[in-house]
Design a protein around this nucleic acid. Structure first.
Lengths: 194, 194
DNA sequence: CCTGTTATGGACTGCATGGTTCATAATTCA
DNA sequence: TGAATTATGAACCATGCAGTCCATAACAGG
């Protein structure tokens, strides 16, 4: 029973996330966030509390989007293992092309904040575990389809793939050469070859 | 023919590096650096130019120390492959114990700066390549000793190991649980098994 | 149409930051 | 011993920062 909010909260979160993703937490100022979202400080403050609040919400927003996207990608192909291979290939393409060079938001957050910010750390941890579970589901599906040996430790392989992708993205930041990245991916993906 | 410098440049660099390593570039203030080194701003400024100059020199300092340490570690055992396994195990121990949770300096730098700071990026790239070369040497030695198949692509495996270790360290920041890390390492090290 | 309530934008605040300056101390060479 | 030179530390500066405040605008319910 008063003046209603004039902006779309989700859209603002999406734009704030993009800025944080590209620049990191410390390097992104409130003015940056105002510019990115088109909102005033008061609106941001009223909606999210403070800068850290915006970041944490942006992180959650990313998690939802990432989970959705990865789930879809890993189910896109009939063969789960092919889907995983395509997923990794896509990451390399993004790094080489440029936009992927900002890394993943989880990885960036872990690198910058995780040691100091417990809330951020546990949120990243939870996010990583969800992604890991999606990978494991794909691996289990592959197992049922006979693509992967019965005795394969799908949990460990999933954890490894997620970790390996983090490494790939990190190396890609300093060295975005396709050859190097493909070499890494080649060895990495051996864990899902028969 | 004038007043000589009163402090040890290498020691100052080492201490500055430790601070940058633990906190990152942005989050480390000049006052932090003065505290850590015990020097005044003028001395730091005269010796290194500015904050970025200190960082870049600290990065180079780290590179030398890391190259020396890794070389020694990978030659510590009679079996190069055992040395690599021990190296990874050691990283996990460090993460679980706490100090390893700050990550590696190269990785941290890549995550924070590489996209924006070309000098930092190329320095990290060069450093990573040196480390990679050390790993490759160990792998070549293993090949000569018959521990590793002749047809193994030592360059690719070396690149993969370096990348994989970055991923391990990054995941360890958000989730320093031994079990998870050992699962990752287990799959990762399969690339050098029989 | 009026009243209570909330959203908004811009101005403002105090503080920490990176960088600079300068007077002084320490040292060398003549 | 004294002139020239350089290192040092403390004070200083402008800037950018996160966070706050307030006057005003926009709405809802009566």
């Amino acid at each position: 029973m008063a003046r209603p909010r004039e902006f779309d909260l989700e859209q603002a979160l999406e734009r704030a996330m993009q800025k944080f993703w590209a620049q990191g937490y410390e390097a992104t100022s409130l003015d940056d966030l105002c510019d990115a979202t088109g909102l005033g400080r008061s609106s941001l403050y009223a909606a999210f509390g403070d800068k850290r609040g915006i970041y944490l919400r942006a992180l959650a927003h990313y998690e939802e989007a990432a989970v959705k996207r990865i789930t879809a990608t890993l189910h896109a192909s009939a063969s789960p293992l092919d889907a995983i291979r395509a997923f990794v290939k896509r990451i390399i393409d993004d790094i080489v092309a440029g936009p992927g060079r900002r890394g993943g938001f989880f990885g960036n957050c872990a690198a910058e904040l995780a040691r100091q910010d417990r809330a951020a750390a546990s949120q990243v941890k939870a996010g990583i575990e969800r992604v890991q579970a999606i990978f494991q589901n794909a691996l289990l599906k592959a197992q049922r389809a006979g693509e992967l040996p019965r005795e394969a430790d799908t949990g460990a392989i999933a954890a490894f793939l997620v970790s390996g992708i983090q490494g790939l993205r990190l190396v890609g930041k300093a060295n975005p050469e396709r050859k190097t990245l493909e070499n890494i991916a080649k060895v990495m993906l051996r864990c899902i070859e028969h």
